[in-house]
Write a protein that binds this DNA or RNA. Structure first.
Length: 423
RNA sequence: GGAGAGAUGCCAGAGUGGUUGAAUGGGACGGUCUCGAAAACCGUUGUACGGGCAACUGUACCGAGGGUUCGAAUCCCUCUCUCUCCGCCA
């Protein structure tokens, strides 16, 4: 969530920035400012009363030690009305605090200066295009047909065992999936990211910390019996590793990578986009997370974008990088770059990575801080990005690399896959 | 799942109602000493929020949430987690 101090210092600027995200309820900002004023007054009031009670209690203690029972009783009488007063101002304080918090949670992160204006995906800015779109032979097939032809993925079997959106990867398909994961992880580790295998379910606090709750509750699978959520991305458990921690400045930047399956209910999204591997309820992804000094977070973002770009390039896929417009970016993000690869047989761009700087939006919820040079604790900035989401990479790879003889495996993946081609 | 024990500062570990934000030891940091280092000695060593230009100051925090009391780390209740034993099991 946004830092209260930012809102207090410049409510007008906050409103102006929120407009870029097409966030309409700007009156919330004014409400927050006035609730904050009220909160400080109540706090002062409460603390004054507490202070008085504390002093009297100390006196009572001293009196009793001196066996001055009568004086002690008199002092006790004095405390009584103060306690009533305390109870009532404390109740007001709690109510105000809760109201303030509820409103604070409703505000999305402020978009950075670089975010293009605009409302829909068409307004996203293409900042770069790379790679070659291949010319496919006549009769080239979309990936779901190739998957069937080479027995790589069994969608029907997934339907039978679980339901739609939960495919089986079989034989060479399973092996290719595993090879890609391992290649991606090694690529990240070589760039200084520490590998984790996190839990695939998280508790409420963690889901709240990265912004999935309360905003995107319907997006996650909820294990009600234990009140746990299946992770929609490794970002959730991995970023939460540092929840409520103060990181040593010398340990920054913290760079982490993790492979996990991701579970998304995708409620209400059916139709043409869900064909084949395009949109699944369970998919594999290798994720990057960084926790950095706030002064360096945009450099870190650039570095992550270029890291992911190198990875995509190494696979030889045609790609483009988009800077998301205010209307298309996520609630918690300040600036997001999406990577899309071209799926030649479908003639469609598929999103395979989303790299974002969340500034202090997540870390303020999670209280992830570091101690700065002057000894003060300060929120770090959090960033994350996919490197990469497997199914759409697989889809694009199958389609773009198909020949009449088989499917070519990209150079760097061959040693993991153990072969140059799928036949 | 059953029985028992426990949760205190960076760590270990005292503290069972009254100057306890918390003994003691270790670690870390600063200093003295040294050519340098070790040892020894001295000192410092929490977080959050509020007030103040600042020195400073108020409040809260001893797993979490409630309660008893003039006063709670300390007593009571609920929850969570950890450990030991038994059961089950990849």
């Amino acid at each position: 969530m946004l830092q209260l101090s930012v809102i207090r210092q410049n409510p007008a600027l906050v409103k102006e920035r929120l407009a870029v995200k097409h966030f309409a309820e700007t009156s919330i900002v004014d409400e927050i400012v006035s609730l904050d004023d009220e909160l400080r007054k109540l706090k002062q009031e409460t603390e004054d009363t507490q202070s008085k009670i504390k002093k009297l209690s100390e006196q009572i203690g001293a009196l009793l030690k001196n066996k001055q029972a009568e004086e002690a009783n008199a002092a006790k009488k004095e405390v009584e009305p103060l306690k009533n007063q305390l109870a009532s101002s404390q109740e007001k304080l709690n109510n105000t605090e809760k109201k303030l918090n509820d409103l604070l949670i409703k505000l999305p992160n402020l978009p950075s200066e670089k975010v293009p204006r605009g409302k829909t995906p068409e307004d996203n800015e293409v900042v770069k295009e790379g790679g070659e779109k291949p010319k496919l032979h006549a009769g080239a097939a979309p990936h779901w047909e190739l998957a069937k032809k080479y027995k790589l993925i069994d969608f029907e079997l997934g339907n039978k065992v679980t339901g739609s959106g939960f495919p089986f990867y079989t034989g060479q398909g399973a092996k290719l999936q595993r090879a890609l994961i391992q290649y991606f992880l090694d690529f990240n580790i070589a760039a200084g990211y520490a590998e984790y295998v996190p839990p695939f379910v998280v508790n409420q606090d963690s889901a709240f910390g990265t912004g999935q709750l309360p905003d995107k509750e319907g997006q996650m699978y909820h294990v009600t019996e234990d009140d746990l959520y299946l992770i929609p991305t490794a970002e959730v458990p991995v970023t939460n590793i540092y929840r409520n921690e103060i990181i040593k400045e010398t340990d920054l930047p913290v760079k982490m990578t993790a492979y996990t399956p991701c579970f998304r209910r995708e409620a209400g999204s059916y139709g043409k986009d869900v064909r084949g591997l395009n949109r699944l309820h369970q998919f594999d992804k290798v994720e990057l997370v960084q926790l950095v000094d706030p002064a360096k977070s945009y450099d870190a973002l650039d570095e992550m974008v270029s890291h992911v770009e190198k990875l995509v390039q190494s696979l030889g896929l045609p790609y483009r990088i988009l800077r998301l417009c205010g209307g298309d970016m996520s609630f918690a993000s300040a600036l997001t770059y999406d990577f899309e690869v071209f799926s030649t047989a479908q003639e469609k761009w598929l999103e395979v990575s989303s790299v974002s700087n969340f500034e202090s939006y997540q870390t303020n919820r999670m209280k992830i801080r570091f101690r700065n040079a002057s000894g003060k604790s300060q929120l770090v900035h959090s960033l994350n990005g996919s490197s990469l989401a497997l199914p759409r990479i697989l889809a694009s790879l199958l389609e773009n690399n198909q020949t009449e003889q088989g499917i070519d495996i990209p150079g760097p993946v061959r040693k993991y896959f153990g072969s140059d081609v799928i036949r």
